[in-house]
Amino acid sequence: MSDTAEGRALPPDAIASATTILMARYDCSEDAATEFLIDWSLRTGVGLTDVVAWLLKDAADTPPAV
């Protein structure tokens, strides 16, 4: 498991889950979604595990589209 900066443990498939979320939201390929996560982390200076944790939390808090 990967740990976030706040000490929270992420499940082993967290990056795959985040990639799947981005693919659905932006209708993009798996490679493009992975590049987006990495680029987001690099541009903001936020660790990849923290970016993934934020995205998973945001997806859980967002009601499904009707």
Rank of each mutant, 00 (worst) to 15 (best):
A16M: 11
R8G: 09
A24T: 00
T62S: 14
A33V: 03
S41I: 09
T62Y: 11
L48T: 05
A5I: 11
S17Q: 14
L22A: 10
S17E: 14
E30W: 02
T62E: 13
D27C: 09
R25D: 07
E6I: 05
A18H: 12
R43V: 07
F36L: 13
D50C: 08
P64Q: 06
Y26S: 11
A53F: 01
A65V: 05
D39S: 10
W54Q: 15
S29L: 13
D61W: 01
D58T: 04
K57A: 12
E6D: 15
M1G: 15
L55N: 10
S17I: 07
C28H: 09
D58P: 00
D50L: 08
A16R: 11
I21V: 05
K57H: 12
G45L: 05
T62C: 11
T19S: 02
A33Y: 01
D27W: 00
I15Q: 09
P11V: 05
D61E: 11
T49L: 05
A24D: 11
A16Y: 06
T49M: 09
C28I: 11
T49V: 00
I21W: 01
S29E: 02
D3K: 04
V66P: 13
D27E: 09
S41L: 07
T4M: 00
A32V: 12
T4E: 04
L10M: 14
E6A: 12
R43N: 13
A53S: 10
A5H: 08
M1W: 13
D58H: 02
A33L: 01
P64K: 06
S41R: 02
I15F: 05
D39F: 02
T4H: 03
C28R: 12
L48W: 03
E6Y: 00
L10E: 12
E35S: 06
A14I: 04
I21F: 03
A65Q: 09
D3N: 09
V52T: 14
C28N: 09
L22F: 01
L22I: 01
A5P: 11
P12V: 14
I21A: 05
D58Y: 02
A65L: 10
D27G: 02
K57Y: 10
T19R: 04
P64I: 03
E35A: 06
K57C: 06
P64N: 04
E30S: 12
D3A: 10
A9C: 09
S17R: 10
T49K: 01
